[in-house]
Simulated scan of single mutants.
Amino acid sequence: MTNDDRPSAAGATSAADYVAALRALRQWSGLSYRAMEKRAAANGDVLPRSTVITMLSRETLPREELAAAMARACGCTPDEVDTWVTARRRLAAANATPNHHTQDLAPGTPPSRFAAERPVDRPSRPPFAAERDGEGDGEADGRRVRRWVLAGAAGLVGVLIVVFVLNRSATADRKPDAGASTRHGPAAGTVIAELTDDATIERARPDGPGDPAVLVSCGPVCATDVAGQSRILLRFRVSGGVGNCPGQATLRLWRLGAGGPVDVYRANSKWEQSTVGWNAQQKAGTWLADTGDTGTDGWESLRFPLAAADGVLALTLIGKQAAPVTFASSEHPTRAHPAELRIDYTCP
């Protein structure tokens, strides 16, 4: 490939077009997410692999510094990086909300000058300063002082009454029901978890992970691996107020070709993608769901109840048949389809 073939965002007309151009640039470079992170670090940029995965799976404009760092990591020249930055600024400006506070001003009139020209009515003297005919200055001053004192005292009493009532109401609202647990965040909502690690472990490779480009699961004996079966491990970072609130989770996986069904279990999250192996795997926990038996490429969705998910959620996928089931990983060289997890939760 030549520089003339390198994808560009110069013709992007929307945020979705811009992100699609970034995906095409990564595919053109042939870099995995891990390799892109290392090349960015060599350039003096910070470009975490998990951040790139999340950025390319959405259709909103990424931060300017992330787009520039990714362009440099993919081999773009300084002029080409400027093209990516200029295109992003153009799209961001097109989506900016106009300032409604100045839209009625005459062209070229600064807001501060307009405000300065508005007439301001100010009383020439206090409202209680009127003097009755025949009163002396001393008597009038004393009368004004007494009126101001009485008005101030009445206002202070009113403020204290309002503060007392509001405080009583807030204290009553904060009293928890018997047995209720303390929680923070909204009563209900949706969280898109961030995929941080995905790996395949194989009985044939007891001390290390398998091919990082794909995720493969089969069992009890793989048709392509007489030494034993393989399993898939996924780990997600969950935030946004889920806490211990129950909810419904949707796991989406991009299936590559035909294969048998796969069981999904909740798992212990104490493992690292770079070092996990068959002998170091965590024991599978509660069964959650199973996939269907499809034979085409595309997204496959699994829904299952989730009692709680605070911080980190790890899953283990175990094949039911000898036919291997293959999914796209976060480091697949041509498919930008890492696993996705959505959680819809409701706090009682």
Rank of each mutant, 00 (worst) to 15 (best):
D293F: 12
V325I: 14
A106R: 01
T291S: 15
R235H: 09
D45T: 02
T294I: 06
T275Y: 12
G295K: 01
G108K: 08
R203G: 11
L66E: 01
V238F: 14
S239W: 09
A94L: 05
M70G: 05
W287N: 02
K38C: 08
A40G: 04
V242S: 04
P119A: 12
D310L: 07
A249K: 05
V221R: 08
S217M: 00
F128C: 14
D207F: 07
A68P: 07
P333L: 06
C347D: 04
L256V: 10
V264I: 12
R39Q: 06
H101Q: 13
A130D: 13
A153C: 08
E80G: 02
V19F: 01
G219W: 06
A328F: 11
A188Q: 00
A115C: 06
P119Y: 05
P111A: 14
D5C: 01
F114D: 14
P209F: 12
G319N: 02
P246K: 09
P127I: 15
E117Y: 09
C222M: 05
L288T: 04
D225Q: 12
C245Q: 15
T346Y: 08
A153H: 08
N244M: 12
A68R: 10
A20Q: 05
D82I: 03
A178G: 08
E80Y: 11
G295C: 07
A96M: 01
Q281Y: 01
A204R: 15
V145K: 09
H184C: 13
C74V: 04
D133I: 08
G295D: 12
S29H: 10
P110V: 12
A309M: 00
G75N: 11
H100D: 03
C74T: 05
A193P: 06
K320R: 13
R6L: 07
A258N: 15
N3K: 11
H337G: 06
A130H: 15
P98Y: 07
S329Y: 11
V159L: 13
K283S: 10
R174H: 14
I192F: 15
L150N: 13
Q281S: 10
P209M: 07
A15M: 04
R23Q: 10
D310W: 08
S301W: 05
D198F: 15
T326D: 06
S269H: 15
A87D: 00
V242N: 02
G285D: 03
S329F: 02
V162K: 04
M36W: 01
T102I: 11
L215R: 04
D225I: 05
S57F: 06
V157K: 03
D225W: 09
D82W: 04
F304A: 00
G247V: 11
S29R: 03
H100A: 09
A289R: 07
V191D: 09
G295V: 13
C76V: 06
D5E: 07
V221Y: 12
R252F: 09
R125G: 04
G295I: 14
R58E: 10
V276C: 07
T326H: 00
I161Q: 12
D198Q: 08
